[in-house]
């Protein structure tokens, strides 16, 4: 008898204004928190997309490389890469500090992985070496997060990025075989990717990120086999006739 009319009154009150809703004010607080995170995430997604697009362009530049333009192309790629870092990676860095790095990681991981791929492919073309995570992060020491700490790439993104690197190197190996030369270049790529693959096989992956990684390692092996097969077919053809004849 007592509460029934009370409820009815509540209802009528509600009908004219939602202000009386007991927990609206709390939810307004929640909304502020969610909005702040969401806006940050949106900015990160955009920055990450830009990092991806421009890193891909660096990789495309590398694929235009041939024996005659090597130095020029590598120089260009390095310049472009630095531009990506200064213009876009810095935008990612600005948004992440403390606990948010991991909270929002999914929003910027794709971009960072592509950046790793671009940076390592440029380094390989320049020096034939693997750009280590430490070297990469040194190159980022000028890029600060919101609290002024240097931004850095973590192991997972680094590994996922260099897993894709093997695909780009496979394309380079096939290209150099296709250009009718490059026995030596292909052999270098072969050794490099073999070492990478063996490195990956040493690691083991926890359940969460593991699935991604296992698949990438499979793709990596496929790329490696393609590279080895390319070297093989150049080799057997080269072995068929004495070098003297071929050179003539």
């Amino acid at each position: 008898m007592l509460r029934a009319p009370l409820f009815a009154a509540t209802k009528r009150a509600m009908s004219t204004s939602t202000a009386t809703n007991a927990f609206h004010s709390r939810f307004q607080q929640y909304a502020l928190q969610l909005d702040a995170t969401n806006e940050r995430r949106e900015r990160l997604v955009k920055a990450s997309r830009d990092v991806t697009i421009h890193s891909k362009k660096v990789i495309f530049v590398i694929h235009r490389l041939n024996d005659s333009n090597r130095d020029k192309i590598v120089e260009q790629a390095e310049k472009d890469l630095a531009a990506v870092r200064d213009a876009h990676v810095s935008r990612v860095a600005r948004e992440v500090e403390g606990v948010d790095y991991w909270k929002l990681k999914r929003a910027f991981s794709p971009g960072m992985q592509e950046f790793v791929e671009a940076a390592t492919v440029v380094e390989f073309c320049k020096t034939g070496k693997l750009l280590t995570l430490q070297q990469l992060n040194s190159s980022l020491c000028g890029v600060k997060d919101a609290s002024g700490v240097s931004f850095s790439v973590d192991i997972d993104d680094y590994l996922l990025g260099i897993a894709d690197l093997s695909g780009e190197l496979m394309r380079l190996a096939v290209s150099s075989a296709a250009s009718g030369q490059g026995l030596e270049a292909s052999a270098r790529i072969r050794g490099f990717v073999q070492a990478l693959y063996e490195g990956f096989c040493l690691l083991f992956y926890n359940v969460d990120g593991g699935r991604d990684m296992t698949k990438k390692v499979e793709v990596m092996l496929q790329s490696l086999v393609k590279i080895e097969t390319t070297c093989y077919s150049m080799h057997v053809r080269g072995s068929e006739y004495p070098a003297s004849i071929v050179d003539s």
């Binding site: 394309r171 096939v174 290209s175 075989a177 296709a178 250009s179 009718g180 390319t230 077919s233 053809r237 068929e240 006739y241 004849i245 071929v246």
Partner: peptide, 21 residues
């Protein structure tokens, strides 16, 4: 486009065969 690369490679190999002979 990746396929195009392989086609080129294959043709290069044949060109090589023909050349060395």
């Amino acid at each position: 486009f990746d396929g195009l690369k392989y086609d080129l490679k294959k043709v290069e190999e044949i060109l090589y065969d023909v050349k060395i002979r």
